[in-house]
Design a protein around this nucleic acid. Sequence first.
DNA 1: AGCACGCCGACT
DNA 2: GTCGGCGTGCTC
Length: 827
Amino acid sequence: LKKEQFHPVHSEQTYVQVILPLAVIGSFSYRVPDEFVSAIEIGMRVEVQFGRSKRYAGIVSGFVPFSDDLRTVKSLLSLLDSKPIVNSRQIEFWNWISEYYCCSIGEVMNAGIPGGLRLASETRIVLSPLFDGSYEDLDDKEYMIAEALSIQNEISLSDVQKILNQKSVHKIIQNLLQKRMIYLKEELQNKFKPKTISCIRIVKSYVDDPEKMRKAFDLIGRADRQLEAFMALLDLSKKQAHVSTKDIYMRANCNSQVLRTMEKKGIIERYEQEISRLSILEKDDQAAFELSELQQSAFESIETIFKEKSVCLLHGITGSGKTEIYIEKIKSVIKSGNQCLYLLPEIGLTTQIMSRLSKVFGDDMLVYHSKLSDAERVESWHKVQNGIPLILGVRSALFLPFKKLDLVIIDEEHDSSFKQHDPAPRYNGRDVGIYLGATHKAKILLGSATPSIESYQNCLQGKYGLVKLMERYSKVELPSIEIIDLEMAKKKKEMKSFFSNTLITALEETLAKGQQAILFKNRRGFAPSLVCDICEWRKLCVNCDVTLTYHKFNHSLRCHYCGAQESLPTVCGNCGSQSLEIKGYGTEKIEDELRVFLPDARIGRMDLDTVSGKNAFAELIHEFGSGQLDILVGTQMVTKGLDFEKVNLVGVLSADQLLYYPDFRAAERAFQLMTQVSGRAGRRETTGRVLIQTFQPKHQVLQEVIDKNFTSFFYRELQERKDFQYPPFYRLIKITLKHKDARLLNEATKLFIAPLIDKLGDRVKGPSIPAIARIRNQYIMDILIKGEKNGNITKRSKQLVLRVKAYLHAQKGFGGVRVNIDVDPYY
DNA sequence: AGCACGCCGACT
DNA sequence: GTCGGCGTGCTC
């Protein structure tokens, strides 16, 4: 090879910084080969080698000026895009998230771009053309690989592990390479392929010329099937741009053979048409509505507030018609040609909202959530890039490549599902939504029937505007809420299993009137388990410090944390007695018991077990909505935004675990949950009824729920937050350390917390062992930092935590301790 | 995060 | 000797 004749010239575009989809901190630079220098832009994907064997698709985040230490960097291997897939505003947005939530930018990238655009290589083993087929000098193992390759001609490393039934395959691969039998290839594969359907059309010359058209009929002659197909094609091509072969099969009594013959005769031709995978949303002009007087005035108040403030909270009770106000606002915004993002906390809620919005906005709208396939997400991505006006989505929709947002709506603003738990970035969709809106100079509209303490406080401090909508749209009164004292009921023997007589009677009355009921059961802490009658022994999970949960459908015990499954023991593991019994109750048990007391009722159950499938949730909702079920028993899910006409009774089976959950947000969540679930009752004609069973009838929060007194609840709760140093007065950072060795973990925790206490003093709380001390064989320790609400302290704390994390990992023996940082944690 | 490398103990 | 299990260090 010729030696380079000239010194390399370092243009401004010669070195780029690349974001890699990994949890590594630090940034990585690559040299841009000359051939790509003119085409490369920020936001494009590039293929790069990282480490010895892996290749990734990274994203160019910037150009770097030449410096001496760039002499040794690798060159990027290829340019994967002809135009950027993310814009620079998004890259800044990613940077902000990674800083705020203390994670690597690669982790943000992973959350941010759809899997279909995220590529990583896999090592493939291919039979070398140089291999002469001499199997003699191969040993047994090598022979097995050669054999596999002669059948499959390309296998992965994990295939080799499987074939040989051993983990370390490195040596064997090396040997085979030396023997020139195989070669390795690393290939990035672009996973996204546009979906196409096969279409047919009449050959153009026939369409243009009536004379020729007659000839076409002559060519068809007396072939009935062909004639029928041809007529169908003529008819359909008037109505639609593309006629698929399927359309023809459906309309005319013909098959592919018929079409093939006509194709051979030259009358029709076949082509592939790219189509969208996204479901087609149709407008329904019937859906027009007018805002009530109250809604109209709320709408106007919002407009007024937006003249001086960028965030506004709409506090509207359930059934007050917030959605109509959103729709009006969206209409006024998208006229400008810019975009609007409508955020919801969960996919479950999208179905109902989607059907309402799509009637108004049709295919000006797009729905984005985690149940979409990779390909569907890539398509959505492109549509957003092309400026689709309205995006309805869950928190991951925040990362779409918006051109210009004018409005961000955050519905059910208080909902804790906005917070991402795992993996990093552990971000809060509401907070990040507000930030995103601000970077676009958009208006941000928060909505809730039970605002979060944080947002309401922001209103009172004048940071956000506040608009109230305290009357129901239908003018139906809010349901009456009654408390049932369980202790009393037990004493008076007025209980049937989990149900008070009052509740059973109310259910009977509801059914008699042909109306529906919802029963709410808080799942937490009450999963059924197998208990010894004599000594109270319960079977524990071998990997986690929790009791195993009984699952009826396959009669087994399962761990909710690691998923381990076991068959039921026949004797007590402690005293050896055989009297083991299933205790505790979940929604399943409630459903069963309910059937005993109300044998004629049609009962449906909604919890994580029953709605895990893609459509299960929607199906259950449909069944209930269309009156095929009388009673719906469920967990949290039933509290969320579901609007059923015929529900007039809501029962809360036990408010107690809600009220006493050990978390600073327990009271807030209890208030929200009970208020929300109450809101499901009596949304149309009749006033609903809500029954709350509890052992603590005098509890303050319950009184406030009955009185529907948000303000009282808010001020009381706010005072508690202040007294006990919680948000919104203090900022929390939760650090979780995990390791399989409890003693090492304890040492690591000491090392970790000492410098924190040194710098931050008594802002550092803990360490504490969480309620579940071990999950998946990993012991857990929590440290909490409570900082005054003051940008400086927060920033200092975050930097310190990151430094201490690096320090710990640099200590001998502590490299394997996992450290999770959760900024603004929930629970 | 992944991956290789190196050290160690167990097993044939 | 070979294999698998860790711990460690590095990745432009």
